[in-house]
Structures are given as C-alpha cells and as structure tokens.
Amino acid sequence: MITKKDLEHIGWLARLELSDDEKEKYTPKLNSVLDYFNELDEVDTEGVEPTYHVLQLYNVFRDDEPGIGSITQEEALSNAPKKQDEFFKAPRMM
C-alpha cells in the first residue's frame, strides 16, 4: 500500500512534479496495479536465477577507432531549447 506521502517521495525520485489533484488521482490507481502485481508473491522462485537478457550473449566490444557516428556541433546543438555561445544552457544549480 503506498500512501500519498510515498507518492510524493516517488515523484521526487522520478523528478515528476505532482499537483494535489494528481496525487489524489494516482494514489489509488498505483495501488490497484501494485495489488495486482502482488500475485507474484504466490510463485515460489527459490533458487531461480533472474533473466536479465534472453540471449546468452557476452563480450560484445567495439574497436578503439575514432570517427564513427560523431555529429557536428551544429547538429548537436540543433535541438537545444536554450543555448549560449557553443554551450547547452541549463538553469542555475541552487
């Protein structure tokens, strides 16, 4: 069961500003989904290894050769909502 306070914490962790309305709205919906997920508790997974990748791939590398895939500075900055000189511009930190 997550409370409104839990939801605020999750919202902060996920960097999603939530209005009071949204907090009211999301709390029961998220709880109903989590309730549903709790059916997994009934499965005994003792000794079962998790599957992170479906294919048993390992050791996939790239050679240390430059020049593949780089884009120009103009392309890099082309989608920036705010820029200054040749930099991306972010808000103040504090």
């Binding site: 997994l40 997974t45 079962v48 290894e49 599957t51």
Partner: peptide, 8 residues
C-alpha cells in the same frame, strides 16, 4: 522477482 518469473 519479475526477472525470476521471466526465467520460468
């Protein structure tokens, strides 16, 4: 837990 179920 979900990843273990995935194995099953």
């Amino acid at each position: 837990k979900a990843l273990k179920i995935r194995t099953l």
